[in-house]
Every structure is written in structure tokens, then in C-alpha cells.
Amino acid sequence: MTLNMVMSHFYLVAAAVVLTIVIGVPLGILAYFYKSVRKIILWIVEVLQTMPALALLGIIMVFMGAGKPTVIIGLLLYSLLPVVQNTYIGLSEVDPAIKEVAQGMGMTKLYRLWHVEMPIAFPLIFTGVRIATVTSVGTAVFAAFVGGGGLGSLIYRGIRISNMAMILSGTFVLMVMAVGCDGIMSYIEKRLYRRFSPAKPYNE
């Protein structure tokens, strides 16, 4: 195993998570603001997550060819659900009294979103990001099959050459990475919740 593999695995996950936030949070906000698209958005992200990872990657590969971008997009589509859903839930469960007060002070919808609702929903959104991250660490293993590299290729090679040590070391690093991400992010999450008023988190 090379550090390279760990790094490329990490890179896949990190890139996917960043993209997930960039795309997922606005989608959640859209779902919150516009009732007309809410159902569709929530339904699509749910269906996406239901898709078998390799099937999804295969389909993307048909369009984009093998390589890291395919994996990153796959992971992104796969991780949208927790982020979009938690953004939506977090925003819509902000205490109506608080929203009313903010409105009463003459804040515009967007100003309110930015200065009142988002800060309150933030811990819950963060929970979504944490779930997305941890899930992506595992799912990124599939990268090996569409030429994306990462720890999946190590495990895959181990299986092919019947090298138990290789499989286990790959798995171990993977678990450490997943548990590590989870631990660090849970810690931040707990502090966030302590600081903000919590809503009910999305949980696997």
C-alpha cells in the first residue's frame, strides 16, 4: 500500500463532499422555499441514493469515460440525500416564532435565510455532511472498478492475488479513515449542537 492510494482515496472523498455541499445545500434551500419543486428534489436525491453504486458509476462512465471525475460525480450523486434532506428539515423546523420575529423586524426573505435560519439549521446540515462523508469513504471503494484508484484498488488487488494481508491492511486503513472522519466530525457536531438550538437530526 502506498501513501498515494490513501491520498487519492481521501482526495476522491473530499472532492465529492465539497461538491455535495456546494450543490446539496442550495437544493435543500430550494426545496425549503418552493413547495412546487420540493417533492421532486427530495424524491430524486432519494432515488439516486437507492441506485447500486457500481450501476451508477457504470452509467456515468458511459458518458464520461473511466477516471476520477466519474467517481467524484458518482459519490456526489450518492451523498446528496443526507445533505439536501437535512438542509430542508433544518430550515423548515426553525421555530416559527423566531421566523416571525425576524420577519417582524423587517428582514427580507434572503437576509433572514442567511442571518437567522441558516445559522439555526447549521448543526443539522453539518450532521448531513458528516453522514455523507462517512458513507463516501466506504463507497469510494468502487472507484477501483472504473479506474478511479484509491483504497478499493488495493483491496481488489488483494482479492485477485489472494493476499489476505493486503485486503486486511486496505480494510483497516479504510475503517480508520471512516471512523476518524466520523469521530472528528461528531466532535465538531456536538459542539455545534451545544451552541445552537438543535433540531432532530437525520440519522441513518
Binding site: 441506485m51 457500481l54 450501476a55 451508477l56 457504470g58 462512465m61 458511459v62
Partner: peptide, 29 residues
Amino acid sequence: LGELIYAGVSSNNNTLIIAGAIPAAIMAL
């Protein structure tokens, strides 16, 4: 269904990939 996807990926046969991926997706749904 992996067999088709797998074979498709390694032989660069998009039809095979789709033939495996779509049923797998539908089955999951």
C-alpha cells in the same frame, strides 16, 4: 447483474454496462 457491468467496463462496451446497470437500478428501486 454485476457480470454485465463488469464485462462492459473491462471491454469498454457501453451497451453491456447499461444492460447491467439499468436493471440493477430498477431492482434497487
